[in-house]
Design a protein around this nucleic acid. Structure first.
Lengths: 345, 345
DNA sequence: TATTAGCACTCTCTATTAACGAGTGCTAAC
DNA sequence: GTTAGCACTCGTTAATAGAGAGTGCTAATA
């Protein structure tokens, strides 16, 4: 258990390092008003904190730097919320004042604002379209052997695929199929689409309507919606502004990670609500060991829809970022609910 | 006018610098088989080439480096095509073998392959959707006061916007409007859409059908398709691999440039067919003064559709890149023509 | 006359060294 | 329990020296 003085010194040390990015020395700390102790006392406490694993030295005679454990303790026990200014709130809400209704656009814009406010890179894990429901299905023929299939979801999202039409299908064949699908599949979750389509196919088979079956098969192949986590980044370059990534090698490996996260399945597990903080190695990836990721989920009604996150150096301004994410995820939950499950939705 | 020997020395110097990124010295050059002259002779020639502005020194007693003028001359007069291996051609064509039909997908994939083959960053200036023609227009109501408008183009591209419906419009009102629009606007270029919609509005006004006019106005606002050059990048990080961008400051300014080019209108003027090379300051931007951009346009029929480009350091492998772009732009022209103006298109 | 060998000179790069400063740990005094 | 004092450590910076690669010029050579 830490004494009050140790708590104070740990907190001030972390705060100072977050601000200056320089190892914190005892003399320096003792100059601060909040720390009415002599350098020697502080040195003693710091030595203890180091022994307990909360602080580290970069070399034998350097000042102290928070360890991962130190950050973790700081984040778990010392994170008082920061007041967000009216101006900042205004900036966050500006997204919703434009009366935008396309969720994708809202998410994208939000990512940009978040990155601007924090000076870190923001990540938006978009709505998983597979959770949307089919509102209307239609097919528009392009050429004799190709057509584009369009699904409009209840959220206003539009999925479209070009697919090829097996030979010698007439317009009326296609119309029949569109009717069939609208009849059976309206209201179905997008991720259920393949299996439901198959069900329809089987039903059609029973009716021995072999030709329509062909068409459904081709369509099925085209409409399979992969579970691709759509990831939007805001201010990717912000990373380059952080002194810890002045080394091009590090910057590159993080950029690489960012471009490929969506290929690593389940890296952003959305199984937890609220705000999550993952520090350094907690991200389970070598490239991320000097980074922290703060995630906040947003919900619509009971259903968890997606999450917004900030990625920055472990020495990031946790207080500010957590507070901003809190405001923004709340706003997103509220405003997206309005749009998706509005009075007539 | 340059003598044959000067030509040879210039060429070998540029080639060597492109390969090694190190200033080229006379002794080093004289060791090469192609250059059967003594270091002293080479020094004399190099001094002349420097006087003429083709070569530069990084400091008084360093080897020579091509100047921008040197690269220009090299590119204009010494660019023999490089043989592309069968394997590489196969890789390029792999895009078309998947029987993909969505142009956007093809473009994106092509960008990735191009970047992989060159180890530079590739840029794809997508098809300008505004040149596509309306094939079918439809509206799907979402709630009582909002709906999504969908335009399918002849190329299979789908544009969609959510827009708000003025109060008290019924389903039949909307149906009437959809019919009206399909009647008047099928076959119209997307960039003509706003003006044509206005024409329809006026026609409706004459018929004193005030309510439909409201709706058309709201729709018009939503469907205005900005001239946003869609830019796809492949391998943005490749830039960080080039030794000239080891300086984070430079890397950042180029990244910044890339993220904002599409906001600088007409930076990629597509007014020229074929392959264009812009070296250093020819790009008219400070951040680009150490970069070259090689652009190749692709056409469908007579119509120029877009262009593919490679961005790299001025010290880039022009030979290889030009050859690869040549193959790829040809392939894109051919294959996209098949898809968009196929036997039934 | 065109080419090349020789040579003095220039400039970068890489140690090496020395002085400085910020910080530490320990001991003894308060 | 706290703090002043002191010797020590280590990173940083500046100055210095030597090696190496390159140049320009002059004189010798084919």
């Amino acid at each position: 258990m830490l004494t009050n003085r140790q708590l104070l010194i740990l907190q001030v040390t972390v705060d100072d390092f977050i601000e200056t990015a320089q190892p914190v020395g005892s003399r320096q700390l003792s100059k601060k008003e909040e720390v009415p102790f002599s350098p020697a006392t502080i040195r003693n406490e710091m030595a203890d904190l180091e022994e307990m694993g909360f602080l580290e030295k970069t070399h034998t005679s350097s000042g102290r730097v928070p360890s991962q454990k130190g950050y973790r303790y700081y984040v778990d026990n010392m994170l008082t919320p920061q007041r967000i200014t009216k101006n900042e709130i205004k900036q966050i809400r500006s997204v919703f004042e434009e009366r935008m209704v396309e969720t994708e656009q809202i998410i994208r814009k939000s990512a940009a604002i978040l990155s601007e406010l924090t000076n870190y890179t923001s990540i938006m894990l978009g709505l998983d379209v597979r959770k949307h429901r089919v509102k209307r299905f239609s097919i528009v023929p392009l050429t004799d052997d190709s057509a584009v299939a369009i699904i409009v979801t209840d959220s206003g999202h539009v999925e479209n695929r070009v697919f090829s039409i097996p030979e010698s299908f007439t317009a009326s064949d296609i119309e029949r199929m569109v009717n069939l699908i609208n009849e059976h599949l309206v209201g179905v979750h997008l991720h259920e689409l393949p299996s439901k389509l198959e069900a329809v196919t089987i039903a059609v088979l029973r009716q021995k309507n072999g030709r329509l079956n062909d068409l459904l098969g081709s369509l099925n192949k085209a409409m399979t919606i992969e579970h691709e986590d759509k990831v939007y980044y805001g201010g990717k370059m912000q990373l380059l502004n952080q002194p810890e990534f002045n080394d091009v090698e590090k910057a590159r490996s993080i950029m690489y990670w960012m471009d490929h996260v969506n290929q690593i399945p389940g890296l952003f597990h959305l199984d937890q609500k609220g705000i999550q903080i993952r520090i350094g190695t907690e991200n389970n990836h070598l490239a991320m060991e000097d980074c922290s990721i703060i995630t906040a989920s947003y919900e619509i009604g009971e259903e968890q829809m997606g999450s917004i996150a900030i990625i920055g150096p472990t020495r990031m301004d946790y207080r500010r970022v957590v507070s901003l994410l809190d405001v923004m995820s709340g706003d997103l939950s509220r405003e997206l609910s309005k749009i998706l499950h509005g009075p007539y939705g």
